[in-house]
Amino acid sequence: MTHRIDLLKQINDIFIDVLDNEEIAITESTTADDVEDWDSLSHIQLVVAVEKHFKIRFNSKEIQSWNNVGEMINCILEKGI
């Protein structure tokens, strides 16, 4: 659980940086609808930043399957992070 919380914090820092918004505080249930400026273009930047940060690669099926940040974390964990 501690690891998930740590991952969430790291992802939150990525969101803050990419979306240039210090006030972002995501949770596992956060979706794009909950975050201002999380649109289709910034989604690409977010995925790229997450892939670079964790040195992993997703495929398009994986990212299309996510319904919230928690599912993104599941996917990151499945890659051995």
Binding site: I44, V47, V48, E51, R57, F58, S60
Partner: peptide
């Protein structure tokens, strides 16, 4: 320098 297949992006 980098290819991101998931979002069809290239750096």
């Amino acid at each position: 320098s980098d290819v991101f297949e998931s979002v069809k992006s290239v750096e």
